[in-house]
Design a protein around this nucleic acid. Structure first.
Length: 403
DNA sequence: GATATTTGACCTGAG
DNA sequence: CCTCAGGTCAAATAT
């Protein structure tokens, strides 16, 4: 049963362990050193960031989306598009047909066809919620961006060498790879485009898009060297595994780990985090390999607050400087628009944003628009229906107390 | 002492 | 109804 296959994932821990191993000459495995929290924050959510950055903190996804939409030149498409493309590709199709796809496959399929959020609590993959306005460049077929793309991905040994011979590669694996790689690209793209962060700027100005991949990691860091991930390093064409790096829990917000568990599907333990903000319902699940490399991150809900200041700890919570209106319960920040599902994106591997559903939505902060560019009343309806209370959870313990 | 993490137990929902 | 798996709680422990 170890089959899970997934496992292998080919994650070479050894390498990962060696964060910085600039093998002379060969730039094979760039180390990913992410900038300290503030960098990420400024990059993705807390918007603050850079001077030039829009004052509103657009969600990472939004950024990404808008970036792509904005920059056709890059030929890079949104993650969704990438996925779509991947799914539409013969190979993907073949895989689907094969039926090896698991639940995830279903999700993807749905997305590829509708591109809409699964309000039912489905996962929303990165870039999924591009607002209609941004969905423009959605190709019916997908084009392959030079720097990275489903095609190259599919074309890559990662996919083919292992999958070609046999479509045994689980859909999940494929998805993971696509996701990760796309995320990588988005990450760097958005970084360049939207955030003139010193780090990024430097990287952006000094390297070509493609070079950025390896570069990003080098964005350097002040002191926080996050583990490196295989996926990131070497060229995207040959990395089977998609481990990205970064300190799992730092995306600008403060998280408190409240649990960890080994899930069946993955051999890696999954950690559960909650946003430390008092009323923030956001949670996230982080899966990491034994090395601590993040293999998957799933966000749930939306922050009902601005992200804490970089230097300060979350506790300050509400005292964010000028962050305009953070209407509680309704951050309808136009920019956040489609997704700011809490600015996540900090991590790159598999990033999923899950709309709060039922019990998770105690606060019901999200709005349909935010969740998916498409208005999906369901979500909200659900939220409201369930959100009777303020946010306190009165879950199971009730029973305990009763007894 | 306060806060965060770890970890085993418990609860819930799905099959 | 039972079992399994995922998710969460909260005491213990660490920082």
């Amino acid at each position: 049963e170890n089959g899970g296959g997934g496992g292998g994932e080919t994650v070479r821990e050894g390498d990962a362990a060696a964060p910085v191993a600039p093998r002379a000459g060969a730039p094979p495995r760039p180390t990913i050193t992410l900038p300290p929290r503030f960098a990420l924050e400024s990059l993705f959510h807390c918007g603050g960031g850079g001077a030039g950055a829009s004052e509103v903190s657009p969600g990472p996804l939004t950024l990404v989306s808008s970036f792509f939409a904005d920059d056709p030149e890059s030929e890079c498409r949104s993650f969704t598009q990438l996925l779509v493309g991947a799914m539409n590709s013969p190979v993907a199709a073949a895989r689907r047909t094969v039926g090896s796809a698991g639940e995830q496959g279903k999700e993807v399929e749905k997305r590829s066809s509708g591109g809409e959020l699964e309000s039912g609590g489905g996962l929303v993959l990165l870039g999924q919620n591009r607002p209609p306005s941004l969905a423009i460049s959605q190709p019916q077929y997908f084009t392959v961006p030079p720097g990275l793309s489903p095609a190259s991905l599919l074309d890559s040994p990662a996919f083919f060498s292992s999958g070609l011979g046999n479509f045994a590669m689980s859909h999940q694996e494929v998805l993971a790879q696509v996701t990760a790689q796309a995320a990588q690209s988005q990450f760097r793209m958005s970084s360049q485009a939207e955030f003139p962060s010193p780090f990024l700027t430097t990287a952006a100005t000094t390297s070509s898009p493609q070079q950025l991949i390896p570069k990003i990691p080098t964005l350097k860091p002040i002191d926080t060297v996050l583990e490196s991930a295989e996926g990131f390093q070497s060229d995207q064409r040959s990395q089977p595994t998609t481990t990205i790096v970064d300190k799992p829990v730092h995306d600008g917000y403060n998280w408190r780990k409240y649990g960890q568990k080994v899930v069946k599907g993955s051999e890696y333990p999954r950690s559960y985090y909650k946003c430390t903000n008092p009323n923030c319902p956001v949670k996230k699940k982080v899966e990491r390999s034994v090395d601590g490399q993040v293999t998957e991150i799933i966000y749930k809900g939306q922050h009902n607050h601005q992200c804490p200041l970089p230097n300060k700890r979350a506790k300050e919570g509400g005292s964010l400087p000028s962050r305009s209106h953070e209407t509680n319960g309704n951050l309808d920040n136009p920019n956040l628009g489609s997704l700011d599902h809490d600015g996540n994106f900090g991590k790159l591997n598999n990033i999923k944003v899950v709309p709060i559903t039922r019990k998770d939505q105690e606060s019901g902060y999200e709005t349909p628009e935010q969740i998916s560019g498409s208005t999906d009343g369901e979500e909200v309806a659900d939220v409201k229906a369930d959100v009777g209370d303020d946010g306190e959870r009165e879950p199971k313990r009730r029973n305990m107390a009763a007894s």
